[in-house]
Simulated assay, not measured.
Amino acid sequence: MQLQNAKVVVTGGSSGIGKATAKLLIEKGAKVLITGRNAEKLEKVAQEIGATPLALDMTHTAEFEQAAEKAQELVGGPIDVLINNAGIGEYAPLGEIRLEQFQKVYMTNVFGLSLLTQAFLPQLKDQKGNIVNIASTAGLKGFATGSIYSSSKFALRGLTQCWQAELRPHNIRVQLINPSEVTTAFYKKDRIERPEEDKKLRSQEIAHAIAAALEMDDRGFIPELTVWATNPF
């Protein structure tokens, strides 16, 4: 697709991978709307990178239809790309897992993501658009204490494959991106970005992968793309 003048929504766009992706797509000429829970932070980031802000909590599913309509109004037409980046994590070993931890993570990473995508689906069908789901290498292989987070990303991988089967006849490309460890504010209560490390991935590498996948001619798409640090050790 052509990113110039494309209308893009990035969830979780006020920091980390979402912010870097929005910034890069704007530099490529796209009109980008970013969402996030913290309206003040979202507004500040939007002004910094030239995006349009829309405060949205991924657990407030009753607001999604209205949010999709508002997004269309703000960007000046139906969207071409939905990037499902917002996500959270909870970690505990088997024997210490609490039901509310599963509920909290799945509400954002699986349920909210699915229902928000559904709210945008009419626009995406109109535009023969693109859905990009940001999963994780944790959705490819589990790890100790990862039952909650990892299983939510395995679920997102399964959702992506179902949507690919359903939406290819509508010329909608559904793509999954699996970052390995990235130096972001993920799982930090203060939400302050971690400092860059020479051998670790930055948000910019994932943003580059997303943009490159989107820029492929519409006759083809990359169903799944995993990004590893070359040598993190």
Rank of each mutant, 00 (worst) to 15 (best):
190 D>A: 04
195 P>Q: 10
230 T>I: 03
50 G>M: 10
176 L>F: 05
144 A>W: 11
53 P>K: 10
108 T>R: 00
156 L>K: 07
77 G>E: 12
4 Q>L: 09
181 E>G: 07
91 Y>R: 08
105 V>Y: 02
30 A>T: 01
197 E>Q: 14
14 S>N: 15
77 G>D: 12
161 Q>H: 14
84 N>A: 09
129 G>S: 13
166 E>S: 06
10 V>Y: 12
135 A>P: 12
18 G>S: 07
66 Q>P: 09
123 Q>R: 13
43 E>Y: 04
161 Q>T: 13
216 M>L: 10
192 I>D: 01
22 A>P: 02
178 N>C: 13
159 L>S: 12
141 K>S: 14
202 R>V: 08
129 G>C: 13
211 A>V: 11
220 G>C: 09
8 V>C: 03
177 I>H: 10
202 R>N: 07
11 T>S: 00
221 F>N: 00
33 L>Q: 08
218 D>A: 14
158 G>L: 03
185 A>N: 15
39 A>P: 03
139 G>C: 00
44 K>A: 14
189 K>H: 11
139 G>N: 02
99 L>C: 10
202 R>W: 09
42 L>K: 01
175 Q>D: 11
123 Q>M: 14
171 N>G: 08
219 R>L: 11
9 V>F: 12
169 P>C: 03
62 A>G: 05
81 V>W: 03
175 Q>E: 06
6 A>L: 07
78 P>F: 06
144 A>I: 13
202 R>I: 08
79 I>H: 10
43 E>Q: 11
23 K>I: 00
195 P>L: 12
226 T>Q: 13
208 H>Q: 13
136 S>L: 00
23 K>T: 14
180 S>E: 07
192 I>F: 04
208 H>D: 12
58 M>H: 12
139 G>L: 02
200 K>Y: 09
213 A>N: 14
118 Q>N: 04
101 Q>S: 14
218 D>K: 15
118 Q>L: 00
